[in-house]
Protein backbone atom coordinates (compact mmCIF):
# COMPACT_ATOMS: atom_id res chain seq x y z
CA UNK A 1 0.00 0.00 0.00
CA UNK A 2 1.36 3.35 -0.97
CA UNK A 3 1.56 5.80 1.86
CA UNK A 4 2.31 9.45 2.19
CA UNK A 5 5.87 8.48 3.08
CA UNK A 6 6.22 6.88 -0.33
CA UNK A 7 4.88 9.99 -1.98
CA UNK A 8 7.39 12.09 -0.06
CA UNK A 9 10.21 9.84 -1.24
CA UNK A 10 9.06 10.15 -4.81
CA UNK A 11 8.86 13.91 -4.48
CA UNK A 12 12.37 13.98 -3.03
CA UNK A 13 13.65 11.87 -5.89
CA UNK A 14 12.01 14.20 -8.35
CA UNK A 15 13.68 17.13 -6.65
CA UNK A 16 17.02 15.39 -7.08
CA UNK A 17 16.27 14.96 -10.74
CA UNK A 18 15.44 18.64 -10.90
CA UNK A 19 18.73 19.65 -9.35
CA UNK A 20 20.96 17.27 -11.26
CA UNK A 21 21.87 19.71 -14.02
CA UNK A 22 24.10 21.50 -11.56
CA UNK A 23 26.23 18.36 -11.50
CA UNK A 24 27.65 18.61 -14.99
CA UNK A 25 31.21 19.77 -15.36
CA UNK A 26 31.90 23.31 -16.45
CA UNK A 27 33.33 23.28 -19.96
CA UNK A 28 34.77 26.78 -19.80
CA UNK A 29 37.63 27.93 -22.04
CA UNK A 30 41.17 26.69 -21.93
CA UNK A 31 42.87 29.60 -23.70
CA UNK A 32 45.76 27.36 -24.66
CA UNK A 33 46.03 28.62 -28.20
CA UNK A 34 46.70 32.25 -27.40
CA UNK A 35 49.11 33.97 -29.74
CA UNK A 36 52.59 34.58 -28.39
CA UNK A 37 52.28 37.70 -26.30
CA UNK A 38 55.92 38.56 -26.93
CA UNK A 39 55.56 38.75 -30.67
CA UNK A 40 54.82 42.12 -32.20
CA UNK A 41 51.81 43.24 -34.11
CA UNK A 42 53.68 43.29 -37.38
CA UNK A 43 55.51 40.39 -38.95
CA UNK A 44 57.57 40.43 -42.13
CA UNK A 45 58.66 37.74 -44.51
CA UNK A 46 61.18 38.30 -47.25
CA UNK A 47 59.72 37.09 -50.53
CA UNK A 48 62.89 37.73 -52.53
CA UNK A 49 63.57 40.26 -55.29
CA UNK A 50 62.97 43.09 -52.85
CA UNK A 51 59.43 42.07 -52.04
CA UNK A 52 58.31 41.87 -48.45
CA UNK A 53 55.17 40.19 -47.22
CA UNK A 54 53.89 41.92 -44.12
CA UNK A 55 51.11 40.77 -41.84
CA UNK A 56 49.61 43.30 -39.45
CA UNK A 57 47.59 42.21 -36.44
CA UNK A 58 44.82 44.77 -36.74
CA UNK A 59 42.37 42.93 -34.53
CA UNK A 60 42.20 45.68 -31.92
CA UNK A 61 38.76 47.23 -32.29
CA UNK A 62 39.80 50.62 -30.92
CA UNK A 63 43.27 51.57 -32.10
CA UNK A 64 45.11 51.38 -35.39
CA UNK A 65 48.48 49.73 -35.76
CA UNK A 66 50.86 52.06 -37.54
CA UNK A 67 53.58 51.17 -40.01
CA UNK A 68 56.45 53.21 -41.34
CA UNK A 69 57.42 51.92 -44.78
CA UNK A 70 60.52 54.09 -45.01
CA UNK A 71 62.36 52.26 -42.24
CA UNK A 72 64.14 49.03 -42.92
CA UNK A 73 61.52 46.45 -44.00
CA UNK A 74 58.83 48.62 -42.44
CA UNK A 75 58.61 49.20 -38.74
CA UNK A 76 55.77 49.38 -36.28
CA UNK A 77 55.39 52.86 -34.96
CA UNK A 78 52.70 54.92 -33.27
CA UNK A 79 50.36 57.75 -34.03
CA UNK A 80 52.57 60.09 -32.04
CA UNK A 81 55.66 59.31 -34.07
CA UNK A 82 56.05 61.46 -37.15
CA UNK A 83 56.51 59.56 -40.34
CA UNK A 84 54.07 56.68 -40.08
CA UNK A 85 52.62 55.78 -43.47
CA UNK A 86 49.86 53.22 -43.06
CA UNK A 87 47.47 52.46 -40.21
CA UNK A 88 45.49 49.22 -39.80
CA UNK A 89 42.42 48.54 -37.70
CA UNK A 90 40.50 45.46 -38.80
CA UNK A 91 39.61 46.12 -42.45
CA UNK A 92 40.13 49.85 -42.11
CA UNK A 93 43.40 50.97 -43.69
CA UNK A 94 44.37 54.64 -43.41
CA UNK A 95 47.28 56.80 -44.50
CA UNK A 96 49.14 59.65 -42.85
CA UNK A 97 47.57 62.21 -45.07
CA UNK A 98 44.33 64.05 -45.71
CA UNK A 99 41.95 63.76 -42.77
CA UNK A 100 44.20 61.32 -40.93
CA UNK A 101 47.57 63.08 -40.85
CA UNK A 102 49.86 65.79 -42.05
CA UNK A 103 52.65 63.73 -43.60
CA UNK A 104 51.16 63.89 -47.10
CA UNK A 105 51.06 60.17 -47.75
CA UNK A 106 49.21 59.44 -50.98
CA UNK A 107 47.93 56.39 -52.78
CA UNK A 108 47.36 55.50 -56.42
CA UNK A 109 45.11 52.68 -57.58
CA UNK A 110 46.43 50.65 -60.49
CA UNK A 111 43.72 48.34 -61.72
CA UNK A 112 44.91 45.87 -64.28
CA UNK A 113 48.58 46.08 -63.33
CA UNK A 114 50.53 42.98 -62.38
CA UNK A 115 52.43 43.33 -59.13
CA UNK A 116 55.50 41.41 -60.23
CA UNK A 117 55.96 43.21 -63.53
CA UNK A 118 55.51 46.69 -62.10
CA UNK A 119 59.08 47.97 -61.76
CA UNK A 120 58.67 51.72 -62.06
CA UNK A 121 56.12 54.36 -61.26
CA UNK A 122 53.81 54.92 -64.24
CA UNK A 123 53.70 58.46 -65.46
CA UNK A 124 49.98 59.01 -65.48
CA UNK A 125 48.86 57.86 -62.06
CA UNK A 126 46.30 59.77 -60.04
CA UNK A 127 47.25 60.29 -56.44
CA UNK A 128 44.56 60.32 -53.76
CA UNK A 129 44.53 60.45 -49.98
CA UNK A 130 42.08 59.98 -47.11
CA UNK A 131 39.17 62.36 -47.28
CA UNK A 132 36.03 63.03 -45.30
CA UNK A 133 32.80 61.31 -46.28
CA UNK A 134 31.57 62.58 -49.57
CA UNK A 135 28.24 62.45 -51.32
CA UNK A 136 27.68 58.74 -51.23
CA UNK A 137 25.42 56.20 -49.56
CA UNK A 138 27.54 55.42 -46.52
CA UNK A 139 28.67 57.58 -43.67
CA UNK A 140 32.28 56.41 -43.64
CA UNK A 141 35.29 58.56 -44.55
CA UNK A 142 36.39 58.15 -48.15
CA UNK A 143 39.80 56.70 -47.47
CA UNK A 144 42.27 55.91 -50.22
CA UNK A 145 42.01 52.19 -49.41
CA UNK A 146 38.23 52.25 -48.89
CA UNK A 147 37.50 49.39 -51.27
CA UNK A 148 40.59 47.22 -51.10
CA UNK A 149 38.44 44.13 -50.50
CA UNK A 150 35.30 42.39 -51.69
CA UNK A 151 32.75 41.39 -49.06
CA UNK A 152 30.66 38.25 -49.42
CA UNK A 153 27.33 38.87 -47.71
CA UNK A 154 26.57 35.15 -47.62
CA UNK A 155 29.73 34.04 -45.87
CA UNK A 156 30.82 37.37 -44.34
CA UNK A 157 34.27 36.80 -45.78
CA UNK A 158 36.55 39.61 -46.97
CA UNK A 159 38.69 38.89 -50.01
CA UNK A 160 41.36 41.33 -51.28
CA UNK A 161 40.78 42.66 -54.76
CA UNK A 162 43.29 41.72 -57.40
CA UNK A 163 44.64 45.23 -57.49
CA UNK A 164 48.01 46.96 -57.14
CA UNK A 165 48.38 50.17 -55.17
CA UNK A 166 51.16 52.71 -55.14
CA UNK A 167 51.97 54.41 -51.86
CA UNK A 168 53.98 57.62 -51.75
CA UNK A 169 55.35 57.66 -48.25
CA UNK A 170 55.92 60.46 -45.79
CA UNK A 171 59.47 60.72 -47.06
CA UNK A 172 58.46 60.75 -50.71
CA UNK A 173 59.48 57.21 -51.57
CA UNK A 174 57.09 55.20 -53.72
CA UNK A 175 56.17 51.62 -52.96
CA UNK A 176 54.00 49.15 -54.82
CA UNK A 177 51.59 47.25 -52.59
CA UNK A 178 49.12 44.46 -53.08
CA UNK A 179 46.83 43.05 -50.39
CA UNK A 180 47.03 39.29 -50.03
CA UNK A 181 44.77 38.25 -47.19
CA UNK A 182 42.62 39.41 -44.32
CA UNK A 183 42.97 36.32 -42.19
CA UNK A 184 45.73 34.73 -40.18
CA UNK A 185 46.87 31.17 -40.79
CA UNK A 186 44.46 30.17 -38.01
CA UNK A 187 41.59 31.87 -39.83
CA UNK A 188 41.28 34.86 -37.52
CA UNK A 189 40.06 38.03 -39.19
CA UNK A 190 41.79 41.36 -38.83
CA UNK A 191 45.23 40.12 -39.89
CA UNK A 192 45.91 42.14 -43.02
CA UNK A 193 48.63 40.69 -45.20
CA UNK A 194 50.16 42.49 -48.14
CA UNK A 195 53.18 42.34 -50.42
CA UNK A 196 55.14 45.50 -50.97
CA UNK A 197 58.38 46.67 -52.52
CA UNK A 198 60.11 49.96 -53.21
CA UNK A 199 59.99 51.35 -56.74
CA UNK A 200 62.62 53.44 -58.36
Amino acid sequence: MITLRHINNIAALSLCVLLMPACAEDLGLDGDDAANEDSGLIEHEDQGEGVTRTQVDGTDEADHVYLDLDLDMGTETSLDDPGWDLGFRRYDVIVDGGIHGDAGVEVAVLDGEAFDSLLAVPSDVQWITDEADGDDEDMDPDTAFVDWYDYDFMTHVLTPKDRVYLVRSSEGAVFKLQFVDYYSSAGTSGFVSFDWAALN
Binding site: L18, P21, A24, D26, L27, G28, L29, D30, G31, D32, D33, A34, A35, T59, S184, S185, A186, G187, T188, S189, G190
Partner: peptide
Protein backbone atom coordinates in the same frame (compact mmCIF):
# COMPACT_ATOMS: atom_id res chain seq x y z
CA UNK B 1 5.50 21.39 -14.40
CA UNK B 2 9.09 22.55 -14.42
CA UNK B 3 11.46 22.14 -17.31
CA UNK B 4 15.11 23.09 -17.08
CA UNK B 5 17.49 23.27 -20.01
CA UNK B 6 21.16 23.95 -19.62
CA UNK B 7 23.50 24.09 -22.55
CA UNK B 8 27.19 24.78 -22.47
CA UNK B 9 28.47 25.68 -25.89
CA UNK B 10 32.19 25.85 -26.40
CA UNK B 11 34.13 26.48 -29.55
CA UNK B 12 37.88 26.26 -29.51
CA UNK B 13 39.81 27.67 -32.44
CA UNK B 14 42.89 25.76 -33.37
CA UNK B 15 46.04 27.87 -33.37
CA UNK B 16 44.43 30.94 -31.85
CA UNK B 17 41.94 32.01 -29.21
CA UNK B 18 40.34 34.85 -31.13
CA UNK B 19 37.29 32.80 -32.11
CA UNK B 20 37.04 30.85 -28.86
CA UNK B 21 33.64 31.07 -27.27
CA UNK B 22 32.02 29.71 -24.18
CA UNK B 23 28.31 30.32 -23.85
CA UNK B 24 26.46 28.74 -20.97
Amino acid sequence: HHNFFRDQFRQDQRGDDALDQYQP
